[in-house]
Design a binder for these strands. Sequence first.
DNA 1: CTTTCATCTGACCGATCGGTCAGGGTCTGA
DNA 2: TCAGACCCTGACCGATCGGTCAGATGAAAG
Lengths: 195, 195
Amino acid sequence: MVRAVPDTHGEILAAAARQFTVTGYRGTSLQDIAREVGCSKATVLYHFANKEALLAELMAPAIEVLRSLDEQLTGLTGAAAQEVAAQGFVDLAVRFRQEIAVLRGEFPELLCQPAFAHIQEISDRLRDALAGHSDRPGARIAALVLLAGISEACGEFADITDDDLRSALLTLVRRAVEPVDALPPQQPTTEDKDS
Amino acid sequence: MVRAVPDTHGEILAAAARQFTVTGYRGTSLQDIAREVGCSKATVLYHFANKEALLAELMAPAIEVLRSLDEQLTGLTGAAAQEVAAQGFVDLAVRFRQEIAVLRGEFPELLCQPAFAHIQEISDRLRDALAGHSDRPGARIAALVLLAGISEACGEFADITDDDLRSALLTLVRRAVEPVDALPPQQPTTEDKDS
DNA sequence: CTTTCATCTGACCGATCGGTCAGGGTCTGA
DNA sequence: TCAGACCCTGACCGATCGGTCAGATGAAAG
């Protein structure tokens, strides 16, 4: 039989996730987290090297998915890139609603830190893909508004199931993205069922 | 001739606006602002009762426009509400790019403070209007994503003129908002030129 | 010259932050 | 029985935060 070993590490992680989503990373102190777990602040810092390491471990799965989406996007152009970016990002945003909500408005500072060094570049590429690699202002603006809006909004719909939210967001993105029909003649349509 | 009277009050306000847009409200200390102005922290607090009062004075014009937009929306329904909300909010977001950028991720805490008490309700009504007062999840989600995305994104396009940004955003919103064609039979179309 | 007033400042305050450290339990394997 | 690994803690640290306060300065008014 299992001994109900106290998984303090996991409890701290869970408490931090909860607190971060409510009050943000900067707005949550290690003392707050310790209080919710029922341990001392020193215990939190025994299990995690520092506050940033706690956040990094919390975000690791989401970042890994983001990285793999980035790889899928390499080489894709036009409408194909748009569709993969849309599906990939919507799926990521829905699955990691909570994690994304943590980063609310903390981006500019956090992205400077080593653990999150490449996120900025990856999301830039993601935005570029969603714009169909077009440099028209309309396409760029639409892509950024959608990415930012989804990131910001997906945490608000706790009452909607993952599936419903995913399909609604995907419909929205497909409707809202600026089409790249008049793309420079490269290939007519590369979106034959290649999978 | 004017004596070049040192407008310290205004200088503090301008410095605060600049710093807040870069490092956010919480991320900017009164010391930072004082340093940029070239005065002491005590001087900042001589001109402004406290840090929150500084922010309130900075946001006052934007809030006033938001409030008047809210009034314009009372009584409007369906597509008419959507169009007024879209035009009004896009215009507001473009004109007050900087002010909106200040509130990055500071919303949950700031909205609790008395100076910003009604903003939450107003933006809820605004979102509702942009959704054409529909309660379909798709309409609600689209409205929230657009409002949040525009708020988040409009500060990023410093290289685009107000007019260009406004028209691009408006085009995007009209394309992205879920149409309310199948609205419950109330009036066939209320959007005859009533102005 | 004296008073008054707005402006500005250095010194200081209590609170809170992230983080360190020495040491106290507790369990396990030798 | 003892050594050592692991887990946890209270006390403490320096830094920084928003904010207070008595007093310096200087120009205008009497």
